[in-house]
Amino acid sequence: MAKDIYVFVECKDGTIRKASLELLSKARELTEKTFSNVYAVAVGFGMNEIAEDLKFFADKVIIVDNQDLKDYRWDTYRGVLEYIIKKYNPFMVFGVATATGKDLFPRLAARLNTAIIADAIGIEYEGEEIKVRKPFFGGKILSWMAFRHGIAPVITFRPNSFAIEKRQTGGEIVEETVEIKKDPRLTTLKLNKGSNHKVDLQEADFIICGGRGMKGSEHFRILEEIAYIMNGRVGASRAVVDSKWREYDDQVGKSGKTVAPKVYIGCGISGALHHTMGMDTSKTIVAINKDPNAPIFQYADYGIVDDLFAILPALKEELKKTKEEN
């Protein structure tokens, strides 16, 4: 049996989200082992360019292009994916555990009465069997999970779980027409898409996070500047969000967002468990704190024990130089 993997591709402002490219890359690695295909499934409105880009990440690109799919809604998207899955009968379906993915995939899995593993961070073949890596208790425990007898299991993965690899040759594009049905019990009155240029916190490669040690909202400006240089995002501890120095959208930690960037820098953050649970799977962790006994140093790869107000201006200059050299 073909073990084709279907990746639901999320787009943002007319471009493919990085996290979706990660899933396509991982799906390719898995399907190469089973001589199967990767399908990219992209749903939306005005999808031509996206489809062309996707050719370099999938064997087949399925596009559903319809004005009524311009903005995501679980009812319309669920209908489309249900149609595609029933028609093509995939071996597995991958999605990203973003706000959209978390809203859509559980409902889709229930609809199809199929297995779901949510918020995973890895997947491998062990012989013929698939096993999925999923953290529990904010990363205190890791697990390998398996499927019993599910048809087309659905798996959602955290952003930054896999590396992106583009391929040389392009796949084929297939356009599907699906009837769009809106649930009449739900009326969208207003969509407020906020600042579009901001990198999504969970997708950012570089996060510089400020804690209570930043002393006030005005000092976050230098963190913004550093984040801008590195094309990353500013994050915050809960103490900072509770003090209204930053928006809740920036909060990293157990009651905020779980992030795993390539580089995380914590400035004036003590490293309470509630915070570290949201960032301890980051690839490289740097802590800047004037207290050598701050718990954050137990989670960090590199530490600077100093006053952050002395460190940050120098850090900004050095990072700028590094970027200019590259």
């Binding site: 995501y72 009449p184 009155l189 207003k190 969509l191 906020g194």
Partner: peptide, 12 residues
């Protein structure tokens, strides 16, 4: 909260 912003929805 939706991806990158907020939505206002009327629900029956």
């Amino acid at each position: 909260e939706i991806e990158g912003g907020t939505a206002l929805t009327e629900v029956q």
